[in-house]
Design a protein around this nucleic acid. Structure first.
Length: 294
DNA sequence: AAGTAATCCTGATCGC
DNA sequence: TGCGATCAGGATTACT
């Protein structure tokens, strides 16, 4: 499941290829991949065709490509991409097709020549959209798409406010895993890295957020950053070939996971068997000895 | 208002 | 060989 490290790998891979590239043509194979676009697919095609991509940006799990020039509403815009559960952005030559491609974007780059972006998404939880860019509340020089405005900065963002995070945690009555997955509190964390971070900090996923001491909250945030940075350094985590980086090579570090998907295997710290419980329509993996509910 | 549940969505895989 | 059941969970919407 693409989370912050996987999305960042995609962003970094796309950046040199799309910066300065012009959109020549678009084919929408499945309109459901435009669910978040405000308008029909013809509108998406009209607005994007002929535009030049300026850069590749990311916050949390959202990725966007700012566009040169202005839209009909006279404001700055971006192509916003969310990979959802199974989305991939594959950088190809003009002759390469991919199974389950929902949207295809043909680019012309001044240095790299003709390119093709295939937006592949089996489960169609991901999406593309043209969105307007607006200043962020805490740093008005920085623009983000309106669809991204409500989420918090991610923990690898240098402007992430640690103190604010601790304060909001201390006022939360729900379990800590719920809080970690709440993108308006801290963005970029999904099920895999939530379980991995909680294992590293030795916290039970249902421990109430407000009950954590400040020291424990600090430890958790530090472990979140370590887990994300480690995964990022290794190119993301991949399962069942659902996640593929921008060059089409599968991520490869799933074997390094300590808790996620490890039910029935011994905890790498104490040897107790890792347990999987159902929670929020997904799995929670933890060590029942290291991660006790207090 | 804050917290939680429901909803969307499909193809690879498996057992029979 | 075919077919139905199973499985994965991010973000948004709709509730309580």
């Amino acid at each position: 499941m693409p989370e912050l490290p996987e999305v960042e790998v995609v962003r970094a891979g796309l950046e040199p290829a799309v910066t300065g590239a012009r959109v020549e043509a678009i084919t929408v194979f499945d309109q459901r991949s435009l669910r978040r676009h405000d308008g029909p697919s013809e509108d998406f095609v009209d607005q994007l065709t002929g535009r030049t991509i300026v850069s590749a940006e990311r916050r949390g799990k959202f990725l966007w490509l700012p566009l040169a020039g202005h839209g009909l509403d006279a404001g700055p815009q971006a192509l916003v991409v969310h990979l959802g559960m199974s989305g991939q952005v594959l950088l190809r030559d003009r002759a390469t097709d991919d199974n389950l491609t929902r949207i295809r974007i043909e680019l012309e780059h001044v240095d790299h020549g003709p390119l093709r972006l295939n937006f592949v998404d089996q489960r169609i939880f991901g999406s593309m959209a043209i969105d307007s860019l607006a200043p962020t509340v805490d740093h008005p020089e920085q623009l983000v798409p309106s669809a991204v405005a409500h989420i918090a900065r991610d923990p690898l963002d240098e402007r992430f406010d640690d103190r604010l995070f601790y304060e909001r945690l201390s006022r939360r009555n729900s379990g800590i895993k719920r809080a970690l997955l709440d993108q308006t509190l801290i963005s970029g964390i999904g099920n895999i890295y939530a379980d991995e971070s909680l294992w590293a900090a030795r916290i039970h996923y249902e421990q109430s957020a407000a009950s954590l001491s400040r020291a424990k909250a600090r430890l958790l945030l530090a472990e979140v950053r370590l887990v994300l940075a480690k995964a990022l350094g290794e190119g993301g985590t991949s399962f069942d070939a659902q996640y593929v980086n921008v060059n089409g090579a599968s991520g490869y570090f799933s074997h390094s996971l300590n808790a996620y998907g490890q039910q029935g295997n011994p905890c790498p710290r104490c040897g107790t068997l890792i347990v999987r419980e159902s929670f929020m329509n997904r799995g929670s993996h933890f060590c029942p000895k290291c991660q006790r509910l207090r």
